[in-house]
Each structure stands twice: as structure tokens, then as C-alpha cells.
């Protein structure tokens, strides 16, 4: 959206950017992605996150990060990114056989 302001000066109309909200529901747990919202600045993003996502006491701590700062992997690369891990079965405990008598290992 473009808007003409003042004496012919042309500026781009800027909307409130998108933020991602992460909430820790109680101490001991990790922050989990809760959703997103719009806010003009970081203070507002925190306040809005509190008002939007913790109305029913869902949280004890909030992180907000502007969505544009998140770098995401591309699903088209999922093959090269994630499949090579699939045959590394030796990383998992069940790969190793132990006599039944051995407990707690």
C-alpha cells in the first residue's frame, strides 16, 4: 500500500510487523511456540503477547521475536537435511544388545 504524504513526498505505508510468540507455561519447561501477532515495537509485542496468549494463566515467561529474524529450513531440502540421520541406528540405545540380567543401563 502506498500513500502520499505532505508535498508529494511518497512513502511506503508500513503496517505493524509480525512477531512470533514463545511461552514457558511453567518453570522447568521450555518455551514453546504459541502463535503470532502484530505489534509496532518490542515492548508492545510483549504486552500484546501477554494480553493475547496468557489470558487464562497459560504462562510464566514470554519471548517475542520479529518473524523476519527467523531463518527456516526449506522442506525441499528435507531429504539431504534429515534423511541421512535415519540410518544411524547406532545412535539409539536399542541398537546394543545386553544380557537380560543387566539392570539400569
Amino acid at each position: 500500500m502506498r500513500k502520499i504524504v505532505g508535498k508529494g513526498a511518497l512513502i511506503m505505508k508500513k503496517n505493524w510487523p509480525l512477531w512470533e510468540v514463545f511461552v514457558r507455561s511453567k518453570n522447568g519447561l521450555e518455551h514453546r511456540h504459541f502463535g503470532s501477532l502484530r505489534a509496532a515495537d518490542e515492548e508492545m509485542a510483549l504486552e500484546n503477547a501477554r494480553d493475547v496468549y496468557t489470558r487464562r494463566s497459560e504462562g510464566v515467561s514470554i519471548w517475542v521475536v520479529e518473524s523476519k529474524h527467523i531463518t527456516a529450513s526449506n522442506p525441499e531440502n528435507n531429504g539431504e537435511l534429515f534423511e541421512p540421520a535415519q540410518d544411524k541406528v547406532y545412535r539409539h540405545p536399542t541398537f546394543y544388545t545386553l544380557p537380560d540380567e543387566v539392570k539400569h543401563m
Binding site: L37, R38, A39, M44, R55
Partner: peptide, 11 residues
């Protein structure tokens, strides 16, 4: 003026 502000004022 915005959904977020609406929710905040209602709180």
C-alpha cells in the same frame, strides 16, 4: 484500532 489493542483494552 487493532485486534491486539482491542484485547488489551478489554483486559
Amino acid at each position: 484500532p487493532n485486534l491486539e489493542t482491542d484485547i488489551a483494552c478489554t483486559n
